[in-house]
């Protein structure tokens, strides 16, 4: 019997479950390597060559080169691992979050200062069956 995954019905959200973790194992382990200062330096000096040392898919490597975090997450990345990439770029969680929403960082900060993204209309991909 397939596992119940009710979280598939949350809009704009990928839950990092065992299936995603399997898909993203090498991508996430590449990210872990950036916890070493020497590796951060080597990565920034030649991103493509550094990525080629990891058994990641071409799509995963391209998403890293593009800093396309939504794509990395779709391909099995998890934001706490991906944080090593934007940390290496000298960026914050707020910068990365803004990128993923498609907003400018200034607009995103403004949204957060006025209370954040409202739950209203953001809880279900499909309206819950009220019948």
């Amino acid at each position: 019997m397939a596992l119940d995954k009710p979280y598939a019905d949350i809009p704009g959200t990928v839950i990092f479950d065992a299936e995603q973790a399997r898909r993203g194992y090498h991508l996430n382990m590449f990210c872990m390597s950036l916890m070493q200062p020497e590796n951060r330096r080597r990565f920034l000096a030649g991103e493509r060559a550094y990525l080629d040392a990891w058994p990641m898919t071409e799509a995963q490597k391209q998403a890293v080169l593009d800093r396309d975090y939504n794509r990395m997450i779709a391909l099995g990345g998890n934001v706490y691992f991906l944080a090593r990439i934007f940390a290496t770029d000298g960026q914050s969680f707020q910068h990365a979050a803004a990128l993923m929403t498609g907003m400018t960082e200034a607009d995103y900060v403004k949204m957060m200062l006025s209370g954040g993204r409202s739950p209203e209309g953001n809880l279900y991909c499909t309206e819950p069956d009220r019948g």
């Binding site: 704009g12 959200t13 990928v14 979050a97 993204r117 409202s118």
Partner: peptide, 17 residues
């Protein structure tokens, strides 16, 4: 407490929750 750091729904805050 409430927060989401990923995807197009990043920034979700639910004060009543």
């Amino acid at each position: 407490m409430s927060h989401q750091l990923q995807g197009p729904r990043a920034g979700l805050i639910n004060q009543p929750f």
